[in-house]
Design a protein around this nucleic acid. Structure first.
Lengths: 213, 213
DNA sequence: CGGCATCCGTGACGATACTG
DNA sequence: CAGTATCGTCACGGATGCCG
């Protein structure tokens, strides 16, 4: 734990200050998980293979103290604790987007040792969509949904869309990988028939026709 | 050192891959320093108070191996080694900008323990300028220059501008701090007389009139 | 003197075991 | 389920030494 003050770079620079709060190992990946909405400790631990229990608990405590997340008890029955990003924490989305955009070039093919979760494809997909609208995405690894263009609330979430989505997308692994790696654009995949799109609203139209430009 | 492979999150996610390369302590701050152009080991060590000599050497080696930076010997006389960002390394600018934008809210007033360097104000100023053009900035802490809107080459640099700048700016500490902290916009500071601007080209006009919108 | 390499004490990290 | 406890290992920070 950290009785008084956590380790700081002690530099009068906003980037260094940001790293004081989110520069520790695992912190930004926990933010990535929590962008999918409230999660339980056990879920976080399951979707962050390699993190030890004490480090996860310590990071969550630091994030609470730093104003990035809150711990809340769900109403009974099932009175479990969930962790949830604050608005300040959700503001880290551009940081993760910038990191993800830069990291696409390093992604390459999936290594045998690489873990995968369905909702990890949410960030790259989100960068390819203007929205607004609710999109449900079905991969072989699982199902998740995107709140494209959402100004508040969770940006994406695990499982089927809560309510009727504006569009549904079904992708095979190779296509999802190519999009995540930046080698294929979503609209092109849809047009080429590598992705199955259903829906007829404006969001489905954007996905079919590519970005409005 | 790292004989075989550096520590990885082993996640098939571009953000995690990015953190594999730049997530270690000090790495992104070294990138921030190198965005100012080629620097010697000793200069880096001087502008990164708190970093130990072996960690700095190790990070530089990792960054070389990761394709972020190169080590080059300057032509004699003064045949010293300098470290320089590759194009890939310079592509991290949006990451530092996103981190810096988020961190502005944490900056507040300068703490007694905080180190300051003049060119650390380059990143927040750069976000306020569209450019293109060469701007020389004079603070109490020192002088630096910005290549606003530059598509390649160093984004900013220590010391006076190399050649005649398109505009010159003189700021006092309070004004620079307020701009860095996001509480004051550059154009407003200029208009209110808190910043002394000279020059009559398009860049000076932009700084006087605010962003073209 | 600049550019590291080495040594050492401390703390962070990762794995496992255990507890309310 | 949600952590805490324990422990071995490694990374970090500080100092010092070496070598051109």
């Amino acid at each position: 734990m950290s009785p008084r003050s956590r380790r700081s770079y002690d530099q009068y620079c906003s980037a260094a200050r940001a790293l004081d709060l989110v520069g520790d190992r695992w912190t930004l990946l926990i933010v990535r998980e929590l962008l999918a909405g409230p999660r339980r400790y056990t879920d976080l631990h399951a979707d962050l293979p390699g993190v030890s229990t004490d480090v996860l608990a310590s990071r969550l405590k630091d994030m609470e103290q730093g104003g990035l997340a809150t711990r809340r008890r769900l109403p009974p029955p099932g009175a479990v604790f969930v962790y949830e990003l604050t608005a300040r924490g959700r503001d880290l989305l551009p940081v993760l987007q910038a990191l993800g955009a830069w990291g696409e070039a390093e992604l390459g093919e999936r290594r045998p040792t690489d873990a995968v979760r369905a909702h990890w494809f949410a960030l790259p997909l989100l960068r390819a969509i203007e929205g607004p609208g609710l999109l449900e995405v079905r991969l072989e690894e699982g199902v998740f949904h995107l709140h494209a263009g959402a100004a508040q609330g969770p940006v994406y979430g695990d499982g089927p869309a809560p309510g009727e989505p504006d569009a549904r997308l079904v992708l095979d692994s190779a296509t999802a990988t190519a999009i995540a790696g930046g080698r294929l654009r979503l609209a092109d995949a849809v047009r080429a028939g590598h992705a199955d799109l259903s829906g007829d609203g404006p969001l489905a139209k954007e996905l079919r026709d590519g970005p409005t430009a």
